[in-house]
Write a protein that binds this DNA or RNA. Structure first.
Lengths: 143, 143
DNA sequence: TATATTGTGAAAATCACTTTCAACATGGAG
DNA sequence: CTCCATGTTGAAAGTGATTTTCACAATATA
């Protein structure tokens, strides 16, 4: 699966006439082996540990490319930081966010998605995307 | 209803040992008689028309107070601007956002809310708030 | 009304990106 | 393999939207 994403990104690079670079490879590896919801800053710091010479701007630009290529998606949880999550082919999910410890849990609910479509139809809207986030305390933090 | 919110805010001010000022009154009036989803900038500009002497920082701080007092709520639609919407006692709603013209439609759906609770329970979460936004084209923009 | 607090506005500071630019890589042409 | 037209980098400057600071003004008791 990491393999698959690497291929997707490589193909994207080629298709766009871009170049394959050492930095992009390193950032891709770090991204693929990271938490599913990393901010630019977090990934940047993680990278710096092993590669003191990679710049923030490069991480920033590369994550944008990941999103463009389809292997990542930008998300915002309202904490002022843009995060990038891994995208699994054809899969969609929403999030449960713990307001105390920051834990993020993903979930899917077909019925909710259907109801959203109904709501949209009722109002004449054609949905392109949606965002559903449930904020609260996770099991651990409730105690 | 405007009356009620004014009272809530006045009580909040008193409770917190804050002061009632001309600016706060003016900003509250402008907020209550405005669109349901105003950004700080928008409200600021609207105010400047009649009150050239009110500062941006004051509008910013006052809107925060509104949110704290419970008569307003901060929302983000991912366009980089924080907006403030009116909060009706005990009411909750979600949003349909037109990605072309920016129109915002509010809706409520009891069934979706219930399902959200179920999802949360399944994962051991205790929900405090949630955010559901459907992005797409409104009726007008679809044509 | 005296005065201890709080509020205000202009300007400076933050934050989280974004863009610029000179110095470096890449990869297809020859 | 060597060129070199293009892309890519990293440091630093620029942006846009807040946030905070600070000197002066307005409030609300005592």
């Amino acid at each position: 699966m990491k393999r698959a994403k690497k291929k997707i990104f490589r193909d994207f690079i080629t298709l766009k006439g871009l170049k394959s670079t050492r930095q992009r490879d390193i950032i891709l590896d770090a991204f693929l082996s990271s938490d599913r919801h990393m901010s630019i800053e977090e990934l940047y710091l993680k990278l710096r540990a092993k590669n003191p010479n990679i710049g923030y701007a490069t991480v920033y630009r590369t994550l944008k490319l990941f999103a463009e290529s389809g292997i990542a998606r930008e998300i915002q949880f309202g904490d002022g930081q843009t995060r990038y999550e891994h995208v699994a082919e054809g899969e969609h999910h929403d999030h449960l966010v713990c307001t105390r410890c920051g834990t993020i849990v993903e979930f899917e609910n077909e019925t909710i998605e259907k109801l959203q479509q109904e709501v949209a139809s009722t109002h004449g809207f054609l949905i392109e995307t949606h965002k559903l986030e449930l904020y609260g305390l996770c099991e651990k933090c409730r105690k």
